[in-house]
Design a protein around this nucleic acid. Structure first.
Length: 573
RNA sequence: GCGCUCGUAGCUCAAUCGGAUAGAGCAACGGCCUUCUAAGCCGUAGGUUGCAGGUUCGAUUCCUGCCGAGCGCGCCA
């Protein structure tokens, strides 16, 4: 719908250019947007404000000239005027606005889709929780966020793949293996002590128990020398168990990945050495000694020569280590190799969704990727702030160490997938989130999930009522005469429906899924207002059909928006 | 000390890549159910957008400096 006005304004500017009122060639960008205030029309442009300098005119004068260049015969635009400091406001004809209803009903579940992505190939990597324990709520937020970003990009015409990076190599995995081994011994009555940094929680005992059930005493003879690597078979057993939980938990909140990428395959294929070699060829690797970190006390710090990547050449604050003292690869080295692998798979853009605690890590990965590919903005990292779990205002303690943490699965069991998904998304990712378990199940206006779903259910209730009255079910398919929709509440409701595709474009462009739930809350609110003020099942059949068409379109957009968030749109509540 | 993310109504949060008079919900107060779902609607009240400068037609938004919060800061992931 915005296109109508965009084309109009573009036409005007072209005309002014040919009339030499504006200089030819490239001009600065102006905008056509929906004003916040409906009294400012359906669309507004700041073109005169932006271009006034080039026309050597005052903004308002230029705006007048622009309107003079507008053919007075307009089919879809009702009125236009100069307002404020030099905005031009346009109003779309009611007929054109009403036309949105059949448009939406015809497009059906495709309404809102666009092709602005031009098929751009994007890989969205998210969750990637370590297979050392069940997912907690923080992972859940990242999961829902990543999934929503992916979906929004899909419906705006991008070719998206979802990927989970499994950190199945490295020291943490070894620690997990030993944690299980110790608990396993304990099950046979041996005295054990869990060393610092191990995983003592109940789930480790559960895994140990299944290991015992499966293999009996088979692993008892294995040394408990913690400095050695734990048996690979035990490690794999534990890890597969945990990954099973993770997949199951993701399933519960309706998240599905296209790819599960194993870190081990990087090691196995020599990808890490290969990547270091690439960097060496570009003369970006050297042996050096780093300064001790400032402001953080490291009691075991000692100056030591390391294999370093020249990250400072690409905007990072210090050069970064690629090898540990035992000459094995750092996590960073593996991560570079992983991201390089993504790049080699031919994606136009890589999006990573990380927890905010990894924020300090962004620059170095981007630096390495730029070094390897020559592309500057290949990797976009979206940081998701932490989740504070709250129950009735009281914080719920979470710690992976003492085993009292609350898992995502527990929360989903308690409040349901819809509430988790919607509430995790109804906040910009940059802001920390207090997730209140009581509020999530409360049936109040404070809980937007129910509010939006209720609007959808209410519309269905009207249709059920229609059937009970024995009236034709086909009423409200948008085909009838809609000219009876003249109330302000009706026209602004339709306008809001018309804004849906634009909202989605904005959400995609800025990677801000939270715009979707906020929009849906607005739409639900506008509908509830309308519903309370106006009777749908009017005695006038033509008018009733028109109103049914309207709310049917509202229902469609609510369903589309909720669907995109992975939240159900119930017919009855 | 440095970096990142933030700071908006009493509380939880919005504000369209710089737009016009900064908006919702909750909490407070007052109204609306013999009619399609009251899990709803309407109204009242609530603000120096942390502070101070700067950029310009215009700043919650961009820049600089302070204040405050969270996260991070060799060989963990």
């Amino acid at each position: 719908m915005r296109r109508i006005i965009e084309n109009l304004v573009a036409g005007i500017i072209e005309k002014l250019q040919s009339d030499a009122l504006l200089p030819a060639g490239e001009l600065p960008e102006y905008k056509v947007e929906r004003p916040r205030d409906e009294s400012h029309g359906d669309f507004s442009t700041n073109a005169a404000l932006v271009l006034s300098r080039f026309a050597k005119m005052k903004p308002r004068d230029l705006a007048e000239k622009m309107l003079a260049a507008l053919p007075s015969e307009q089919k879809e635009v009702d009125s236009w005027e100069v307002a404020g400091p030099g905005f031009i406001n346009f109003r779309i004809t009611p007929q054109r606005i009403r036309q949105l209803i059949p448009d939406i009903l015809e497009a059906n579940s495709d309404y809102g889709r666009s092709t602005i992505g031009n098929g751009q190939r994007i890989l969205v990597e998210f969750v990637s929780a370590n297979p050392t324990g069940p997912m907690h709520v923080g992972h859940g937020r990242g999961a829902v966020m990543g999934d929503a970003i992916a979906t929004i990009l899909q419906v705006t015409g991008h070719a998206v793949e979802r990927e989970y990076y499994i950190n199945d190599a490295g020291t943490q995995i070894g620690v997990l293996g030993w944690s299980v081994m110790l608990r396993y011994r304990e099950l046979f009555g041996y005295e054990i002590s869990m060393p610092d940094g191990s995983y003592p929680a109940q789930y480790v005992i559960d895994i140990a128990q299944s290991l015992k059930d499966k293999d009996g005493e088979r692993w008892l003879e294995i040394t408990t020398d913690l400095s050695a690597a734990p048996p690979l078979e035990v490690v794999n057993f534990a890890m597969e168990r945990i990954m099973g939980w993770i997949r199951h938990d993701l399933e519960k909140i309706n998240i599905h990945f296209d790819n599960w990428f194993s870190e081990r395959t990087l090691h196995a294929k020599g990808k890490i050495d290969e990547t270091i070699e690439q960097l060496t060829k570009k003369d970006l690797i050297y042996e050096g000694v780093l300064e001790p970190p400032k402001g953080k006390l490291l009691d075991d710090w000692e100056a030591r020569p390391q294999l370093l990547f020249k990250a400072t050449q690409f905007g990072d604050s210090v050069d970064r280590a690629l090898k540990k003292s035992d000459n094995s690869a750092t996590y960073f080295a593996a991560d570079i190799a992983y991201h390089f692998d993504k790049a080699e798979r031919g994606f136009d853009l890589l999006i990573d969704v990380w927890g905010a605690d990894h924020g300090g890590y962004v620059k170095r990965v981007q630096a390495a990727l730029t070094a390897l590919t020559g592309k500057k903005k290949l990797l976009d990292v979206e940081l998701v702030q932490m989740v504070n779990l709250v129950r009735g205002g009281e914080p719920v303690k979470m710690s992976k160490r003492d085993g009292t943490f609350v898992t995502l699965a527990e929360v989903v069991d308690e409040v349901g997938s819809d509430a988790v998904r919607f509430l995790f998304l109804t906040r910009s990712g940059g802001a920390a989130l207090d997730f209140d378990l009581e509020l999530a199940v409360s049936k109040s206006n404070d809980n937007p999930v129910f509010y939006v779903q209720y609007a959808h259910a209410r519309i269905n209730a009207v249709y059920r009522q229609l059937a009970e009255k024995g009236l034709e079910a086909g009423l409200g398919d948008g085909s009838g005469d809609l000219s009876g929709l003249t109330q302000d509440s009706e026209l602004s409701l339709i306008r809001l429906l018309g804004a849906y595709p634009e909202m989605l474009e904005g959400a995609a462009l800025n990677r801000e899924p939270h715009r979707v739930p906020y929009y849906l809350i607005d739409l639900a609110s506008a509908f509830h207002t309308y519903y309370n003020s106006t009777r749908i099942l009017d005695d006038d059949v033509v008018l009733m059909a028109a109103r049914l068409s309207l709310i049917s379109a509202v229902r469609q957009v609510l369903a589309n928006g909720l669907g995109l968030l992975g939240v159900s749109a119930p017919e009855k509540m």
